[in-house]
Design a binder for these strands. Sequence first.
DNA 1: ACTAGAAAGCCACATAAAGCCACACCAATC
DNA 2: GATTGGTGTGGCTTTATGTGGCTTTCTAGT
Lengths: 257, 257
Amino acid sequence: MSRPLAIDRHGQILQALEAQGSVSVSDLATRFGVSMETIRRDLKALAEEGRLVTVHGGAHRLTNEPSLSRRTIDNAEGKAAIGRAAAELVEDGMAILIDSGSTTLGLAQSLVGRSNLTVLTNSLPIGLLMARTRTIRTILLGGEIEPNDEAAFGLDTLDLIKRFRVDLAFIGAGGISETGDFTDYTRLAAEQRALMMACGQAAYVLADHTKFSKRTPVLITPAPQLAGLITDRLPSQEPAAIAASQKWPIRLAGSSV
Amino acid sequence: MSRPLAIDRHGQILQALEAQGSVSVSDLATRFGVSMETIRRDLKALAEEGRLVTVHGGAHRLTNEPSLSRRTIDNAEGKAAIGRAAAELVEDGMAILIDSGSTTLGLAQSLVGRSNLTVLTNSLPIGLLMARTRTIRTILLGGEIEPNDEAAFGLDTLDLIKRFRVDLAFIGAGGISETGDFTDYTRLAAEQRALMMACGQAAYVLADHTKFSKRTPVLITPAPQLAGLITDRLPSQEPAAIAASQKWPIRLAGSSV
DNA sequence: ACTAGAAAGCCACATAAAGCCACACCAATC
DNA sequence: GATTGGTGTGGCTTTATGTGGCTTTCTAGT
């Protein structure tokens, strides 16, 4: 009987670490089907190389770096579920576009470990995350960086988007109006998101349920490629949720972990 | 030379490695119908040619270029000193371009706290760092991301560079040749760096002393804007250092903290 | 704040897979 | 027919992993 390569495990551990910030010994042990002691030895070796720090129960990423700062993401669980649901739509060999935002970041995290994909994004954290997998080809849509989003916006970004065609586009939104339409904070961002939709053969908006109660000023003109909305749950009392459910096909992400 | 069978095997092993990142001895043995010992000899031979690295149980793709994301930066102190020296050239209100690399990252770190600056960069870590200051306007030059550098390279990047003109450009280099010229790992990177030089009214190459003993294959064609080299110290015994000092104005960064 | 139980860590030992080396073998080549 | 280079085999060493016993650390309930 042959033994799986230890070095592959090391690589995947580091990937999981990039995506999640921390990993637990028991999770890794079950995931790889090896004993906890083996995982401990892996983590110890990686820690000696200075690639992570071990903590009781697992390991943690070194904290100096441009992190996908896990700065208290609201409704992290719901966004992770949306990410997993969206990732199921992504098939081997596809080229996809991922917009910036904490919800779309959930999708990127779910794609870690996949290979034979091409990801276009205007988000720096997503770009770094994807590039570090080393198995996903990553193209960054450059432009002027908006510090709040840590993503590129602007004329150059619009221009770059126009040069590509992808299989799927996953778009964020600032909020959802009472009419069920998607809205954004600025004119430029709305324009850019509309263009991103048109870049894909099919486009999905990723928005968690908190967006139904958010109103942002600029309407995003939906492109014909818009295939639906992926969210975690529909707040039944929200007019925006009711309107949206009548307007777009909605895919509910099971919040079960 | 060798049996045709063996040559086929070597090629296919490298191909499998390219596709999967790693291969196991036992898998290859069953796949080719030969003994594990033979596969080991194959891997050993390929490892001696520098085409892969052997690990217990198989082999792993080599990452030719030392990765930036491994946190231990060689000669961090010298690079920080170079960064401070370069930062002194940057005046209020300027627009500057910062190339990717660990040395140029030192410059970016020295600029934290400054304001009224515009920074163009193709490096994701530098872009994030600058954007997070919120006082420095940041423009990211997009394109395909090279995982080792965590920076954008490619046709789109070249195209974007051409659209800007900056006051100062700070360029990295893979190595310095015996003739004192700057060299790089790939044709594309060399081209891109040359274009970056031409983007500035004046351009400086930032390279610490370890670069004088590094030889990388592709020559960077210097643009006329190249105003000099900023380094931490000149290894007197290195022919590359002597040649460079005769060819370019050199600014030595005081290593004093 | 204290303490008991549970979970995780550590160490030593056992074992199976992998690596290494010397030698034998086989099939082309000169 | 001798030579040469690739390949397989057997014996030994090394490495990776699992297991059990013990210690340490965390957590929750009083």
